[in-house]
Write a protein that binds this DNA or RNA. Structure first.
Lengths: 412, 412
DNA sequence: TTTTCATTTGTGAAAATTCACAAACAAACT
DNA sequence: AGTTTGTTTGTGAATTTTCACAAATGAAAA
């Protein structure tokens, strides 16, 4: 294994612009250095020919949105964020992006920025990777200061989000003002989403996704709390936002479940969407509620994350509390339970399966692995014992509710 | 028309025992005088032959229970309580009751007692009716005193019931003690039932029924509040009591609806059954709740009176209040309503009918007078517009609840 | 005016449901 | 042992549900 030369020994104290030039000379190609937010930091100043993407980046002092979107979509950033080596990117003519190589500038797990090397004068090969690796290492100290400021800003934004979540601000105007002062642009429509995974470094695993969508987030114990929003859309906004959240969740849950240790589960829930930022407390509470219900009824709410999708489960805790206050106990259910105990039958399970299957005998019998006539016999017995009419929607719905409420007590 | 003689002119100041003897002589038959509670007041003292019923009555100082039950069942008391003329009663050998004639002693609408004339020495004919009529009139003054005492006692019992209903007593022991001091025997199992009919003299119309079952009751505005109980039964008590209440209600509602003016409706509700008398407040509140719900959802709860039968309606008011507190508004329902408005369709009604029919398409289409395929088309549209899955019980039940909650706001 | 779209109704066939009736089985009781 | 009781499964027929497809309607749009 040959010892690689130390390309940047004599430039340890050069400033970032000079560094860009040096890299450019080493690779004989145009160089761009960006921070983690894709704002332009430096670029090599030789008058080489360049592509539209680089030109726009330099003119706008930031990488154009459509380029970023495309690179996220193609998984380029995912690669950059998770590995130390340079990533070779083929040309993408539709967005005016020529062939190039990029590497992340990182300290520990934090990504401070990126170095981009366009391939126009000569191809950049695997042999050049070491140059870029060293360049990224040298660039770190140059970006730390900037990063420090960014971190502090982000810290203040996170604190602001906590204030919003806890409802410390009562006036919409004050909130908007503070957001402005923190240079945040609040989405016109938003909701709160929580992902929980015990024992996993949530923010680390989700980092690429969080960056991609530029989300505002805070970590609370084993939960990560996200503010997800939409800024522009005019109509059907609710649907679009929810689709975006579901997309985000399917991305992140997939990723997390791969990383997380076997035993502990990953769950997520989100509240309803609002426009006023005084309502953020509501959305947060709703997300917490959804999470709680998903823990209590995992099977029943599999694949469901939104508070608005909880259906009757939304009411259960409240109703249970009310029933306790009223000193109500359900005699009919108790009767069935007793019958089951005395006769070693499973009528309660039968009833629950039947109700869960929305009264479809076929599906119920199948799930219980019993003959359809057995089911019909059992249902008749249930009606006799409980003195209910299962054809009556009121009674059916009431039973359904009471059954699920009873499950909350672990009465099974 | 012959002028009837005044049979009792010379006995205007005779005491009640003497009066019994006089009537006995006039009719040449054994006479018994009882108060409204069937306690023996006086009886003719001639040594005539008599039947088992009269003998038991005199020995026990009260008409035997089985005789009373039978006479109530045969409608004899109903007649006696509602008409001024004597009632001729055929022999009922099974209960040791010989042929006899009876008349109520009444002042205005109050029944103070009864005169019984057994037919053993000679038949009592229609010509003798006038004798009994006059006898009843003369007896009135003799019973008024006694009646006064009874009224006062009843008044104190009613006050006691009010105290129980309002929960003024917290200790079971104190309640039992006070009941003893009022010479009331509290049923071991009881419930509170309320009948409401605006503008009807409830207690008057129900008088025979109230007397028959010896119920404790109070009137509150247009409501009559009843304590209905069972004393002895050991098992299945809940069912028996509820059957008794339903029987009572079908009797009384039938009677009331005949009497009451067209416009105003008669409604009834009852709470759950309890054993401890500190729970009477609960049963009363439950009865009131049932009544309230029946007013809000008359069709939905037709033929239902018991709090335990309300099903989901039991929860509605609570849930509505909760939703208001949470500031929740159901967007999916609103979407459907809006669609209906914009397209002059009736999808909301369709949905409600479908849910009310527990998902039976046949029944639904029939009720809506539409083709079954029209219904299936509409249901598909509803699922599209609301983005729900009507085959999913959770969503179905949630929609059902939300629909009924929405009806509370008159949103229809 | 034609065209389009949402809605309603019809037809027919496969699948599911309901119902009555009977046989098989095991556990409990006499 | 036989009997009773509660439960499960099977058979067959009538009815209902589901689904795909087509035709008719009427109102709005081009």
């Amino acid at each position: 294994m040959p010892i690689e030369p130390n390309y940047f020994q004599q430039y340890q104290h050069a400033d970032i612009d000079e560094l860009a030039d040096v890299i450019g000379e080493l690779l004989q190609n145009p160089i761009t250095v960006e921070d983690a937010d894709h704002k332009l930091i430096a670029y090599s100043s030789h008058g080489e020919s360049t592509d539209e993407a680089r030109w726009s980046t330099i003119m706008g002092r930031r990488v154009p949105e459509k380029v970023l979107t495309r690179l996220w979509k193609d998984g380029v950033f995912q690669e950059l964020l998770t590995q130390d080596d340079p990533v070779h990117i083929p040309a993408k003519d539709e967005i005016g992006l020529g062939k190039r190589v990029a590497i992340a500038i990182r300290r520990g797990s934090d990504v401070l920025g990126y170095i981009w090397a366009q391939e126009v004068n000569r191809p950049i090969t695997r042999e050049d990777d070491e140059i870029l690796r060293q360049a990224a290492r040298v660039a770190v100290s140059r970006l730390i200061q900037r990063q420090g400021k960014r971190k502090a800003e982000e810290q203040r934004r996170k604190e602001f989000l906590w204030e919003l979540l806890l409802g410390n601000h009562s006036s919409e105007a004050v909130i908007r003002q503070k957001a402005d002062s923190l240079q945040m642009q609040l989405p016109t429509s938003y909701l709160i989403c929580i992902i929980e995974a015990a024992g996993a470094r949530l923010d680390q695993y989700l980092y690429p996704l969080l960056m991609r969508d530029k989300l505002l987030w805070v970590v609370d114990g084993s939960q990560i709390i996200l503010l997800i929003g939409l800024s522009d859309t005019k109509k059907d906004k609710s649907d679009v936002l929810i689709r975006k959240v579901e997309q985000f969740l399917s991305d992140s849950l997939g990723k997390l479940e791969a990383h997380v240790t076997e035993g502990c589960q990953v769950i997520a829930g989100y509240g309803r969407d609002y426009k006023s930022y005084t309502d953020i407390v509501k959305s947060y509470r709703e997300a917490l509620h959804a999470l709680k219900i998903k823990k209590l009824f995992p099977q029943e709410n599999e694949g469901i994350h939104g508070y608005h999708e909880l259906g009757i489960y939304r009411y259960l805790l409240q109703l249970k509390q009310w029933e306790e206050e009223q000193g109500y106990q359900n005699e009919r259910l108790e009767k069935l339970r007793q019958y089951d105990r005395e006769n070693q039958t499973t009528l309660l399970t039968t009833l629950e399966t039947f109700l869960d299957a929305a009264g479809k005998v076929n599906k119920t019998a199948e799930r219980l692995h019993i003959h359809i006539n057995t089911l019909s016999y059992r249902l008749r017995r249930i009606e006799e014992i409980m003195r209910v009419d299962l054809d009556n929607m009121n009674q059916r719905a009431a039973l359904y509710l009471e059954l699920k409420i009873a499950k909350l007590d672990g009465e099974q």
